[in-house]
Computed example of a mutant assay.
Amino acid sequence: MSGAVVIVSYRALPERVDTAKREIGTLIAAVQAIEPDCGGITMLQDASDPARFTLIEYWPSQETFLGPHMQQPHIQSFIQSAGAFLAGPPDISFWHPVGGA
């Protein structure tokens, strides 16, 4: 797969883990239904710290993720409501596949 692999890490408020899991899952469903540039998203929950969630996302480029994707109404709505269930902003990093290893 070419393009960008985006790793997004969230920390839920301890008392809002179930809400965070539900809201992140709803956001993923919206992105996958509405944004054709998204090549897939996997949500992981830390086995030893259930308040930690990581998304592995596939996009054609970092610019697509940071530009059109971040301007979508469902993303902006999530950002506005996230303070109710997340401990802070996500950590976002960009990766690319390395072939032949």
Rank of each mutant, 00 (worst) to 15 (best):
P36Y: 06
P36C: 05
P36S: 05
P36T: 10
P36A: 08
P36L: 02
D37C: 04
D37I: 04
D37K: 12
G39T: 07
G39F: 08
G40V: 12
G40S: 12
I41T: 13
I41H: 05
I41Y: 08
I41N: 05
T42C: 12
T42L: 13
M43P: 00
M43Y: 08
L44K: 00
L44H: 07
L44Q: 03
Q45Y: 03
D46S: 14
A47L: 15
A47Q: 15
A47G: 11
S48T: 10
S48W: 10
D49E: 12
P50S: 10
P50Q: 08
P50C: 08
P50F: 10
R52T: 15
R52V: 12
R52D: 08
F53G: 00
F53L: 02
F53N: 00
F53D: 00
F53R: 01
T54H: 07
L55Y: 03
L55G: 04
L55W: 06
I56C: 13
I56K: 10
I56P: 02
I56W: 04
E57M: 02
E57N: 03
E57L: 02
W59T: 01
W59G: 00
W59H: 01
W59P: 00
W59C: 01
W59D: 01
P60Y: 11
P60R: 07
P60L: 11
S61D: 12
Q62R: 13
Q62C: 11
Q62S: 09
E63T: 06
E63L: 04
E63Q: 11
E63F: 02
T64H: 14
T64R: 14
L66M: 13
L66E: 09
G67T: 01
G67Q: 01
G67K: 00
G67A: 02
G67I: 00
G67E: 01
P68M: 15
P68A: 15
P68C: 12
P68V: 15
H69D: 05
H69R: 04
H69Y: 07
M70R: 14
M70S: 15
Q71C: 07
Q71M: 08
Q71S: 09
Q71Y: 05
Q71F: 11
Q72I: 03
Q72F: 03
Q72R: 11
Q72N: 04
Q72K: 07
P73Q: 13
P73C: 10
H74Q: 06
H74M: 11
I75S: 03
I75N: 04
Q76L: 15
Q76A: 11
S77I: 03
S77G: 09
F78N: 05
F78W: 09
F78D: 09
I79A: 15
I79H: 03
I79S: 02
Q80W: 04
Q80V: 07
Q80A: 14
Q80S: 09
S81V: 08
A82S: 15
A82G: 13
G83R: 02
G83E: 06
G83M: 04
F85R: 00
F85I: 04
F85S: 04
L86C: 11
L86P: 02
A87K: 03
G88T: 11
G88S: 13
G88C: 13
G88A: 15
P90Y: 02
P90W: 00
P90M: 05
P90G: 05
D91L: 08
